[in-house]
Computed example of a mutant assay.
Amino acid sequence: MQTKFNKSTDAQHKITLESSIISSTWKVAKAYGGSDAEFEVKTSLVGEGAKIKIKGKSEGGKSLGKISDVIYCNQFSGKLTVPDNIKIGDMVYFEVELPQLSLKDESNHIPAGPPIEVTNMKWDVKEARRGDIVKMTADIAGVNDGSEIKVIILEYDQDGSHDKIVEIPTQVKNKKLELFWKYEYHEDTDEIPTHDELQKYGKSYNPPEYFFVVDIDSIQFGKNQESGLLEFKDFVDIELKSESGKGIPNEKYILYLADGSQRQGNLDNGGHAREKNVPPGEIRIEFPDIKDSVIN
């Protein structure tokens, strides 16, 4: 396509703008057997909705399937599935065709790797408290030791809209993942929906829970919570003072917790108490022997 024009500026000139395929590239460095490999096609001056055809191949004669679709905004992204039985070291590529414009292109060639397996994904504990150091582990096959991978920690959502908390780069060592993470809860626990609030909509209380996903060359393992769910447990400190600021000792209290449960206890001689392993969320405190003493 012509990009330089040396004609005069005081006259009209007719030029022809040509459509073209700028690039056809894989978005991954290796194509693993049994997994999807992402690719991207970029074009220039291709009309919206133009037909595009993709055909995945390997130099050894394996097919990675075909895609027929349309292109928008001069860009098309997709995935091709690498056969389970592809030979390790075979080179895979894809062909691009824009039939309405008679344009064709071929992608770069990348090596095929063995199928990846990520198994035994788990947390070392089932519950976490603020400041706890928790460990994530998994067995990884089909990836060389020292390979860069990512661990993505997500907060579980019953409706499937999981929130990403953090993405941590790490490496495979001895065919395993072993990663430590310091748990903190930075949101306002009062914003966690309580049992009473959710009951109006036919739902039940659910504390913040977390699972992790292992990402290897954009192939993700654990999206169905195979790691299990790590549950957040909180605590509450109770302090009762007189108007003069002196602690009121041994007073009975009742906690109304976010999950709809209750706890009872007595303050110590200094007017203090701490309740551990509390479901996080809004809490009401009542001192039943003191009139009008419910505190949110």
Rank of each mutant, 00 (worst) to 15 (best):
residue 130 R to I: 08
residue 167 E to V: 01
residue 166 V to S: 03
residue 160 G to T: 06
residue 19 S to Q: 06
residue 142 G to H: 10
residue 253 Y to I: 13
residue 208 P to F: 05
residue 182 K to P: 01
residue 173 K to I: 15
residue 10 D to Y: 15
residue 23 S to V: 01
residue 57 K to Y: 14
residue 216 I to H: 02
residue 284 R to H: 07
residue 246 K to L: 14
residue 233 K to N: 09
residue 132 D to Y: 10
residue 199 Q to C: 08
residue 282 E to S: 08
residue 127 E to M: 15
residue 61 G to L: 05
residue 220 Q to G: 02
residue 264 Q to Y: 13
residue 6 N to D: 13
residue 104 K to D: 12
residue 255 L to M: 02
residue 199 Q to W: 12
residue 6 N to S: 12
residue 74 N to T: 02
residue 82 V to M: 01
residue 188 D to H: 03
residue 8 S to K: 14
residue 180 F to S: 07
residue 171 Q to L: 11
residue 220 Q to F: 11
residue 16 T to S: 09
residue 186 H to A: 02
residue 278 V to D: 01
residue 178 E to F: 11
residue 162 H to A: 03
residue 110 I to L: 12
residue 175 K to N: 04
residue 8 S to W: 12
residue 221 F to Q: 02
residue 234 D to Y: 10
residue 213 V to S: 03
residue 148 E to G: 10
residue 284 R to G: 03
residue 186 H to N: 06
residue 49 G to Q: 06
residue 9 T to E: 12
residue 8 S to G: 13
residue 179 L to P: 00
residue 18 E to G: 03
residue 281 G to H: 06
residue 128 A to C: 09
residue 202 G to I: 09
residue 20 S to R: 04
residue 29 A to G: 11
residue 133 I to R: 15
residue 18 E to C: 02
residue 220 Q to E: 13
residue 132 D to H: 11
residue 192 I to K: 00
residue 102 S to F: 10
residue 70 V to S: 14
residue 271 G to V: 10
residue 198 L to G: 03
residue 296 N to A: 06
residue 142 G to A: 13
residue 116 I to F: 09
residue 159 D to M: 14
residue 33 G to Q: 05
residue 237 D to W: 15
residue 248 I to S: 07
residue 27 K to V: 05
residue 231 E to M: 10
residue 101 L to W: 01
residue 4 K to L: 15
residue 7 K to E: 12
residue 85 N to I: 04
residue 2 Q to H: 12
residue 122 K to V: 04
residue 177 L to P: 00
residue 133 I to K: 15
residue 92 V to Q: 01
residue 223 K to D: 08
residue 50 A to F: 07
residue 44 S to T: 11
residue 195 H to M: 11
residue 33 G to K: 02
residue 165 I to V: 10
residue 74 N to G: 02
residue 267 L to Q: 04
residue 104 K to A: 11
residue 142 G to V: 12
residue 67 I to T: 07
residue 142 G to W: 04
residue 295 I to F: 14
residue 279 P to S: 04
residue 71 I to L: 04
residue 91 M to H: 08
residue 67 I to N: 00
residue 175 K to P: 00
residue 252 K to G: 10
residue 63 S to Q: 06
residue 43 T to M: 00
residue 144 N to A: 15
residue 211 F to P: 00
residue 188 D to M: 01
residue 45 L to G: 00
residue 126 K to G: 13
residue 205 Y to M: 08
residue 33 G to C: 08
residue 40 E to C: 05
residue 24 S to F: 02
residue 83 P to D: 06
residue 14 K to R: 14
residue 236 V to I: 14
residue 138 A to G: 08
residue 45 L to R: 09
residue 21 I to P: 01
